[in-house]
C-alpha cells in the first residue's frame, strides 16, 4: 500500500525519531510512505477564522498533491494532522472559503476536499489493522505499563477529527495492547499540556504537564507515549521522571527495527 506522507518541519529536525521510526515501521507493515514533494510547514495551529486564507494554503497544497495521486494523506505529528484535517473539512463544508482558496490554486488545480486524511495511528487501525500489526510484532513488550497521552489535537474538535470518542478514546490503548504491553488508562490523558504557552509562560505549561504525569504515574504508568513533539517537550521539561517517548519508537521496537526504547 502506498500513501502520501506529510512529515512537517519538526519531524525533520527536533523530532527525527518520530519520523525515522514511522518510516522503518511502515516498511515492516508493507506501507510505503511517499513524502510529498516540496511540502511546506502547516503552521502548527489551525486558525478557526473563516477569513484566514493564506495561512491555510500550504495544507491545501499538500491535500491536493495527495488527491492527484489518489492516495490517502498520512501524517504523524498530532499538530500537522490537526491542521491538515481541519483545513480539509473547511474545504469540504465552507464553499465561500473554498472559493477564495481556489483563486490561489490556479497552478495546482482546484481542490474541494476529496482527500482522505489519516493520522498514522488511524492508518494502523483502519488500513493496516491492529490484528495484522499484532502478527508482525517480534519483540513483545510484555509487562510494560504504558500510558497514552493524547493531548488535544488528535481528538478535538471531534466533529472534524472523528478519530475516536473524544472523552473516552481507545485507539492508543489498543495500539499499546497490540504491541503486547499493558495500557494504563488515566483521567488526564486528553487534557492539554499547555502547548505553545511555553513560549510565553513556561510555568503554566509546567503546571499542566506535571499534573498529567502525576496522574499517569498514580495509575501505574512506567512510560508515557505521545504523537506530538510539543507535548513531549512540555512533559519532559516539566521534570518527568518516567520516559516520555514517541509512539513510533515503541512501534519500531516491537517490530524489531529499533533497539530498546528507554532513553
Amino acid at each position: 500500500m502506498k500513501v502520501s506522507y506529510f512529515p512537517g518541519c519538526t519531524l525533520k529536525n527536533k523530532a527525527k525519531d518520530l519520523d525515522i521510526y514511522a518510516y522503518k515501521s511502515a516498511d515492516v507493515l508493507g506501507v510505503t510512505l511517499e513524502e510529498i514533494e516540496n511540502w511546506q510547514c502547516c503552521g502548527g495551529v489551525f486558525t478557526t477564522a473563516n477569513d484566514e486564507v493564506a495561512t491555510k494554503l500550504s495544507s491545501v497544497r499538500a491535500l491536493k498533491y495527495a488527491s492527484d495521486k489518489n492516495q490517502p494523506l498520512v501524517s504523524v505529528c498530532s499538530a500537522c494532522h490537526n491542521v491538515l484535517k481541519q483545513t480539509n473539512y473547511a474545504m469540504q463544508t465552507n464553499t465561500q472559503f473554498a472559493d477564495k482558496v481556489n483563486r490561489y490554486m490556479a497552478e495546482d488545480g482546484a481542490y474541494n476536499g476529496e482527500t482522505e486524511v489519516y493520522h498514522y495511528l488511524e492508518m494502523l487501525r483502519d488500513l493496516v489493522t491492529f490484528d495484522t500489526l499484532k502478527e508482525k510484532v517480534v519483540n513483545v513488550l510484555k509487562g510494560k505499563k504504558i500510558a497514552a497521552y493524547y493531548g488535544c489535537l488528535l481528538l478535538r474538535p471531534n466533529t472534524v477529527m472523528k478519530m475516536d470518542d473524544p472523552e473516552n478514546p481507545t485507539i492508543m490503548e489498543d495500539f499499546i495492547r497490540a504491541l503486547g504491553a499493558d495500557a494504563v488508562v488515566y483521567a488526564k490523558r486528553n487534557e492539554c499540556c499547555g502547548g505553545y504557552i511555553s513560549a510565553q509562560s513556561p510555568e503554566t505549561a509546567k503546571k499542566n504537564s506535571q499534573a498529567i504525569i502525576e496522574n499517569a504515574k498514580a495509575a501505574g504508568a512506567e512510560m508515557i507515549i505521545t504523537a506530538c513533539p510539543l507535548c513531549k517537550y512540555n512533559l519532559v521539561k516539566s521534570g518527568a521522571d518516567i520516559p516520555v517517548v514517541y509512539f513510533t519508537e515503541l512501534l519500531a521496537e516491537a517490530l524489531g527495527v529499533k533497539e530498546d526504547t528507554n532513553e
Binding site: 518541519c9 529536525n13 503552521g43 495551529v45 505553545y196 511555553s198 513560549a199 510539543l230 517537550y233 521539561k237
Partner: peptide
C-alpha cells in the same frame, strides 16, 4: 530541545 512546532505555533497565535 525546543521543537520548531513551538515557535511556529507561537508566531501563528501571537
Amino acid at each position: 530541545d525546543t521543537p520548531q512546532q513551538l515557535l511556529v505555533s507561537a508566531f501563528r497565535k501571537y
